[in-house]
């Protein structure tokens, strides 16, 4: 335990001083993306990993967050920091709606996965059709650089924000692993009827999980919009984000505190490695990435975290 604590402190200290050591904006950008996806991967992990409700449509929350803060900023001049809070609320509400419908009707497994996918498509089509979302034209976040405007003049600002979000997500993971609520979610994942027999209100727990998960994703959406200054229905609600945030925790270690962080680091590292190795023929780097994905699943069925566990306590069962 002490060794672990020491390691955590060192890792955190390293993360804090990284901007002073890393002078490359490219690598800073790489770290920002890695941390952002680690954070959003944990958002997915709350519902998909701990509670066992695999979602294919987490872009619903990401997109809702991105649109909420951006629309409020453009139309009502709301400060994006406050917009980020509004994004969390809006995405949480959408989570409540989808969760209420799906869990009320007892959807599980692939049925739940598919309904989230369908909702994401519905949102994408709606965003495409309405005036206030800019329709297919999308929305441009006005370029007004300044930290109070959530448009940092350098990568360092975005880095510390992403780092703060990641630390928050790790804290949420730690809380889930040590709280009654987290234990209830894991009990539901293992056997829902058994959990209910033990007095867990599965419906309420799952609903709370999807709201928390959605709200976290919503913040990620605002982060994205402020970072890249443009969103459209496909960026916001398309399958790209949904797939990426589920890959991250599954590759890292489903339902674990460190899984999303490890997964994000490995996936983005693999992507970058592929680009550097495979040269300029379009697509070859992604072929390599795909192969790497399959190989990782083949040899690390428990995720990257399995590698660490195997070393620490052999035979430790995956929760």
């Amino acid at each position: 335990m002490t060794a672990r604590t020491a390691f955590a402190v060192i890792a955190f200290a390293a993360a804090l001083i990284a901007p002073f050591v890393v002078h490359s904006d490219f690598w800073m950008g790489f770290l920002i993306t890695t941390l952002l996806y680690a954070y959003m991967g944990m958002a997915w992990n709350v519902l998909g990993g701990y509670a066992g409700q695999v979602s294919f449509g987490h872009a619903i929350f990401f997109g809702t967050g991105a649109y909420t803060s951006t629309i409020l900023h453009i139309s009502f001049g709301l400060n994006p920091w406050l917009g980020m809070v509004a994004a969390a609320v809006a995405a949480g509400l959408v989570g409540a709606l989808i969760g209420y419908l799906s869990f009320r009707y007892g959807l599980r497994g692939s049925y739940f996965a598919l309904i989230t996918l369908a909702f994401a498509e519905v949102f994408r089509i709606l965003a495409n059709s309405f005036e206030f979302t800019g329709g297919g034209v999308g929305l441009y976040v006005p370029l007004k650089i300044g930290w109070w405007n959530l448009q940092f003049p350098s990568k360092t600002g975005f880095y510390y924000l992403a780092l703060a979000l990641t630390c928050l997500s790790l804290a949420i993971g730690a809380w889930l692993e040590n709280s009654r609520f987290g234990a209830s979610l894991m009990a539901i994942r293992e056997n829902e009827s058994a959990a209910e027999a033990l007095g867990v209100n599965a419906f309420a727990c799952k609903l709370k999980a999807i709201i928390l998960s959605g709200a976290m994703m919503g913040v990620g959406g605002t982060f994205y919009a402020q970072h890249y200054l443009y969103i459209d229905p496909t960026i916001a609600y398309g399958p790209g984000v949904s797939v990426e945030v589920l890959l991250v925790p599954i590759i890292g270690g489903l339902g674990t505190m460190l899984g999303p962080l490890l997964g994000s680091a490995v996936l983005h590292g693999a992507g970058e490695l592929a680009r550097r190795l495979m040269g300029d023929v379009p697509g070859l780097d992604l072929v390599f990435y795909g192969v790497l994905l399959i190989v990782m699943v083949r040899f690390l069925p428990e995720g990257v975290i399995g590698l660490l566990r195997r070393r620490h306590k052999p035979g430790a069962a995956h929760a």
Partner: peptide
């Protein structure tokens, strides 16, 4: 210096950093 934006704005922005460096 050939760079691929993968049809994504975020990847495009990251490639700018790489090209810059």
């Amino acid at each position: 210096l050939l760079a691929d934006a993968q049809s994504r704005p975020d990847v495009g922005a990251a490639e700018i950093e790489k090209l810059n460096e």
